[in-house]
């Protein structure tokens, strides 16, 4: 049942590094993270890797396997042939710290820039009433485990370092959408989505949805609806006129 697999693992830091070859035992039912751990325990005790729950729930072990952003713990070895060489590198959108560990502070910075949930000021704890159908959309987005694979794959920042200042990335645009759709949130987030979080940079090429380990429909259910809400606010003269008339008549 077990065999020796060939791995290439990137070892290095900001100054440079190499794709190091390893041959390592693989047993039935294992995932790539198990193999990385076996490398640590047997051949490379100082191989740096981030991980935590090992069940695809915490989103710590994000890396790129054969060029694709993936969770190490959710990539089963059985998806590869025994002959295949498996290349594991750190995320390539964020600065590398060491080996497979990157500096993901960009994401925490962007998280801070999204205005927090703003409930009605006079609503007391215990008095919140929301219908299931009204919370379901935002609940889907709250499945996010913040693995930042979508942030990693998004070409807006992956291929254009300079866009990092003006673009929040799929994860945090989805957070804006989540709050904008929250039945009790009082803030209008459409202006901010356009002006501060760079929604217009998204060209909906859907890579975020493709890599999402939680299978959240980021593009179809969050980003595009948010774009449409921005259109409601900024680009739709019919809606604009309607609002104007309604305001006048009321």
């Amino acid at each position: 049942m077990s065999y020796d697999a060939r791995f290439k693992v990137w070892r290095g830091d900001a100054a440079g590094g190499v794709l190091q070859d390893y041959t390592v035992e693989v047993n039935e039912g294992e995932v790539v993270l198990d193999i990385i751990h076996r490398l640590q325990a047997t051949q490379a005790p100082d191989l740096a890797v981030r991980w935590n729950c090992k069940a695809g729930k915490c989103g710590s072990c994000s890396a790129e396997i054969n060029g694709k952003p993936r969770l190490l713990c959710m990539t089963r070895m059985s998806t590869f042939t025994e002959e295949q060489v498996i290349t594991v590198t750190p995320l390539r959108t964020f600065p590398v710290m060491r080996d497979l560990v990157t500096d993901v502070s960009f994401n925490y910075q962007k998280a801070r820039e999204v205005q927090a949930f703003s409930p009605p000021a006079d609503l007391q704890p215990g008095d919140y009433r929301m219908q299931q159908v009204d919370v379901e959309r935002s609940q889907e987005f709250r499945k996010c485990i913040e693995c930042f694979l979508c942030q990693d794959v998004c070409h807006v920042v992956r291929d254009h370092e300079d866009n990092k200042t003006s673009f929040a990335g799929p994860r945090f645009l989805m957070r804006v959408a989540e709050l904008d759709m929250h039945p009790l949130d009082t803030a209008d987030r459409r202006q901010a989505a356009k002006e501060e979080h760079g929604l217009g940079y998204c060209n909906i090429t859907k890579c975020c949805t493709e890599v999402c380990p939680e299978h959240i429909k980021i593009t179809d259910n969050a980003l595009i609806p948010l774009k449409e809400r921005v259109v409601d606010r900024h680009y739709d003269p019919v809606v604009w006129l309607g609002n104007k008339i309604r305001r006048r008549s009321s």
Binding site: G16, V18, D21, R158, D159, H160
Partner: peptide, 24 residues
């Protein structure tokens, strides 16, 4: 070290070769 297949002294430029990222 022995066994390394690619010594990376890739010059920094744009995209995935931006400064700070893993030099692959």
């Amino acid at each position: 070290p022995p066994g390394a297949t690619e010594v990376s002294n890739v010059p920094f430029s744009g995209g995935v070769h931006a400064p700070g990222r893993a030099r692959i």
